[in-house]
Design a protein around this nucleic acid. Structure first.
Length: 875
DNA sequence: GGTATCACG
DNA sequence: ACGTACGTGATACCC
């Protein structure tokens, strides 16, 4: 039994509030919708949070009320309701109807009075009340039983007025709000109050004497002042103002609390109205989140086995597993669905069924899934080699728009207007409440997800064809998923004892450094807490503050670097941080991920996540294993080949991003540099500093390298100045000189931003897209960020396209050459293999050749390579 | 769950 | 004048 709760809404006030709070919005017919929209979003939020059982929306009736007989100027001087708002009232009425909420207005009375009267009725029977308005007058109704919600700035930012909150905010009891209004008046209602008395003065007076009446009873004792004169002169007006501000608690209303029972909205009617008003995001959000939305009947069957009659080509299959870690997660069951059948088989029964296993492995039997790689990996654990996958909704949706990447079938399907499905969060619950679904719930969820894949397939493919992205999806991402599955399943051997030995040493050194730090600081504290460290450095030790974060002092490495000359403790802290990172993230973190059975680590590549088309790696991340500092680099000694007599082999693209830039910009100087095989940073230094090669100092080369990076990132003078620790002006000059030397790059950068602004997105070499809605933002920061993104994404994304294609080619090449070598890892511009020693010489020719020739650019692609007994040694 | 920091390309 | 380098993931704090 749910707790009963009454919700009372001040319709007029909320409508006005929403109208002025939101920017003008219109639907496709040009009708203004901002008030209705604000009202709706507020309502959605309140309904979800409060779960009311009774609701009434009160409106003002007509122009005059009983208050006008007290004071004819009441609410006088108000601006006429703007027509843009007036035209929205019919829709507000429809909205309230669609929500199935009781609506009420009463001649001669205001919405406030209706609300006040019902709040008191509810109070007398102990029914909790929430009042919602945009008008603070209503806070006078707050009691222990009634909370008043007042909307702030937007419509969904709401302040909760309880008696305690009012006490805290004004130092007054709720009923004293009336006295406050009596004294200070209210300009919006044209209540005069006492001229010259504002909120501060009114509160001060009421703290001395708790009501308007008592203020006047004690007025003689007040010492002479301008204020006293005004109070005396306006006594009648103050008392009348108080009367006007008082909400009636006994209005002659005809509705009773019991009439207000609410059983939820009429979903169809509500959606129809939202569609008419073009509330698209609201519809999508609501369809996705709604736990109770009606799903269509689905005629699914739970069976123990399937025969060839059911196991036909062209089924959507869906393997349901207990969590996203598909290398270890418990498999629950499989759905087999097309337009005329929906079957669910528990995983246990799948393993018992030869016919099903044969079907899954039959390449001729076409199947559709959501996340091919997950399916292949999870089935592979039981020796099932899933084949014949022709469609992957996850990848197709990612190519359509990488911003909509989601591992939830429901979220992706909703994006394609298919909503007959529930999200994993709804089915599994979240946080501590998460549990695996069983029986019917499990079967239905699996079948609905498979049906979604089956249904949405046509829509997504159509879109991919329209945008000329089908090839990218079908020739790159889909085959790559299979290659990645193989790499993940294979895994890489990591020697736990190597890590452990390093850990022992690091632990001892950390203890030593820790003691040094405490000695230097003169106290013990948590070095890992930036907050505590900040206090020690900048307060106890009084070091100069160079940079601040949102929450306090910055203690980041670049700041500490500058503080090194100031105090010996800094060196120790940097050392402590470096070793602490190695210990927690790499020694301990990686050790946890080593599988006990095969001594290997099996990462998961996220193929539908990044905005640019790159992969990412999780659980653990094998794309950020230390290399820059020698101490960290040793971690790579723990990564070894699977077998005796084998080696690791690594090959990486040289300057792939700058080569892509040369190709795309067609800048003459940049292209020449690569065509002649020059050192690119030295060459840039020569051009920027106008010197001969011999005269390029290491500092000049370092600066040129930073400029080259900056160009790839979408340059800004500030960013470059930070990186090189030079002034912004100097950085700006560098950039200017760079563009003088490489005018083609300059033109390209300008053109790409222009093009992106006009079409709304940027593209890569293989036609990957990234939409950049913020390019036209009025917010400088958002817009600048989008502009840099427009410059960076085609470069980073095209490099990602190239290595993805190289991986597919490489996988094929290994098979064609019948090599035992296996591709194990990808690190953005680098591929790592393991192979018998006798194959290394073959790889040294084959791998760079495949990588260099996978696409044809107008500058050469080049890959460097190396082999060794560990990953560390393959350098 | 957000923030700071630091590891990689 | 605005306040930034692009793309990620893991860990430790702290509310």
């Amino acid at each position: 039994m749910t707790q009963e709760k009454l919700l009372l809404l001040d319709g007029n006030s909320l409508a006005y509030r929403a109208f002025f709070a939101l920017p003008p919005l219109t639907n496709s017919q040009g009708i203004h919708t901002n008030s209705v929209y604000g009202f709706t979003t507020m309502l959605q939020k309140i309904l979800e949070e409060e779960q009311p059982t009774h609701i009434l929306v009160a409106f003002d009736a007509g122009k005059t009320t009983f208050r006008h007989s007290t004071y004819t100027e009441y609410k006088g001087g108000r601006q006429k309701t703007p027509p843009e708002l007036s035209e929205q009232f019919p829709y507000l009425r429809k909205l309230v109807e669609a929500y199935n909420m009781k609506r009420y207005e009463l001649e001669n009375y205001e919405a406030d009075d209706i609300i006040g009267t019902l709040a008191r009725q509810a109070e007398s029977r102990g029914l909790p009340v929430v009042v919602i308005s945009g008008d603070k007058d209503l806070t006078q109704l707050a009691t222990d039983n009634t909370t008043v919600y007042i909307t702030r700035k937007g419509m969904t930012d709401i302040e909760h007025y309880t008696p305690a909150h009012i006490e805290e905010k004004y130092g007054l009891k709720p009923l004293q709000i009336i006295d406050m209004k009596g004294l200070m008046g209210d300009a919006s209602d044209n209540i005069p109050g006492v001229p010259g008395v504002g909120e501060k003065t009114a509160i001060k007076l009421l703290k001395e004497h708790p009501s308007v009446e008592e203020v006047y009873e004690n007025i003689d004792a007040m010492k002479a002042s301008k204020m006293k004169e005004k109070l005396v002169a306006n006594k009648e007006q103050a008392l009348m103002s108080k009367e006007l501000a008082t909400i009636l608690l006994e209005a002659p209303i005809e509705v009773k609390v019991d009439d207000l029972k609410w059983d939820g909205p009429n979903v169809d009617e509500l959606f129809t109205l939202w569609k008419e008003l073009d509330f698209k995001t609201l519809i999508e959000k609501s369809e996705y989140e709604s736990e109770e939305h009606e799903t269509m009947e689905l005629d699914y069957k739970i069976v123990d086995d399937l025969t060839d009659k059911e196991l036909v080509t062209g089924l959507a299959i869906h393997l349901e597993i207990e969590n996203e870690h598909y290398h270890t997660a418990l498999q629950l069951g499989v759905a087999f669905v097309n337009e005329e059948q929906a079957y669910f088989v528990t995983y246990e029964n799948v393993l018992k069924s030869e016919s099903i296993k044969n079907y899954l492995e039959d390449e001729q039997k076409v199947k559709y899934v959501f996340d091919l790689k997950k399916h292949q990996a999870a089935f592979a654990r039981d020796g099932i080699k899933l084949q014949g996958i022709e469609f992957d909704l996850l990848l197709a949706a990612y190519i359509d728009d990488p911003a909509f990447a989601s591992d939830d079938v429901a979220a992706v399907s909703n994006h394609y207007h298919y909503s007959d499905i529930q999200s994993n969060e709804v089915v599994y619950g979240k946080g501590a409440k998460r549990t695996n679904p069983e029986g019917e719930a499990l079967a239905e969820h699996a079948c609905r997800q498979a049906l979604a894949v089956f249904t949405v397939r046509d829509r997504v493919l159509k879109k991919l064809h329209e945008n000329e992205q089908f090839d990218l999806y079908n020739e790159i991402e889909l085959p790559l998923a299979k290659v990645l599955a193989g790499m993940e399943i294979e895994g890489i051997r990591v020697e736990a004892s190597t890590l452990e030995e390093m850990g022992v040493e690091i632990k001892a050194r950390l203890a030593e450094i820790e003691a040094n730090i405490y000695a230097a600081a003169g106290e013990k504290f948590n070095i890992n807490s930036p907050k505590q460290l900040g206090v020690v450095l900048f307060e106890t030790l009084g070091l100069p503050v160079i940079k601040k974060t949102k929450t306090g002092y910055s203690t980041a490495a670049d700041v500490l670097d500058k503080l090194k000359p100031e105090h010996d403790i800094i060196e120790h802290i940097l050392q402590y941080r470096q070793l602490g990172k190695l210990q927690s993230t790499y020694i301990e973190g990686l050790t946890k991920e080593i599988h006990a059975d095969d001594h290997k680590i099996h990462t998961r590549y996220q193929q539908a996540l990044t905005a640019t088309g790159r992969l990412s790696s999780t659980d653990p991340n094998l794309q950020n294993i230390p290399i820059r500092l020698e101490e960290g680099r040793k971690i790579r000694q723990a990564f070894i080949p699977e077998k005796e007599g084998w080696q690791l082999f690594a090959a990486d693209y040289s300057q792939i991003e700058l080569r892509v830039l040369a190709h795309m910009s067609q800048d003459e100087n940049l292209m020449q540099a690569f065509l002649h095989g020059l050192d690119i940073h030295t060459n840039t230094a020569m051009k920027v500093f106008h010197v001969e090669e011999d005269a390029v100092t290491s500092n000049m080369r370092r600066a040129a390298k930073a400029v080259n990076f900056g160009i790839v990132y979408g340059i800004s003078d500030y960013g470059l100045s930070q990186n090189l620790d030079i002034s912004r002006k100097e950085a700006a000059e560098f950039i200017e000189r760079y563009f003088e030397s490489f005018p083609g790059v300059k033109t390209y950068m300008e053109d790409i931003v222009k093009e992106a602004k006009s079409q709304g997105y940027v593209t890569t070499l293989l036609n990957r897209r990234r939409y950049l809605p913020d390019l036209n933002s009025s917010n400088f920061n958002l817009r600048s960020f989008a502009e840099r993104t427009a410059m960076n994404t085609p470069i980073q994304g095209s490099a990602a396209d190239i290595i993805k294609k190289a991986m597919i080619d490489m996988d094929l090449a290994l098979k064609e050459h019948k090599l035992q070598a296996k591709m194990l890892l990808q690190v953005h511009d680098e591929l790592i293999f393991e192979a018998p020693v006798e194959e290394i010489a073959i790889l040294e020719k084959l791998v760079p050749e495949v990588m260099a020739n996978t696409v044809k650019l107008d500058v050469p692609l080049l890959a460097d390579y190396s082999a060794g007994n560990t990953w560390y040694d393959a350098k």
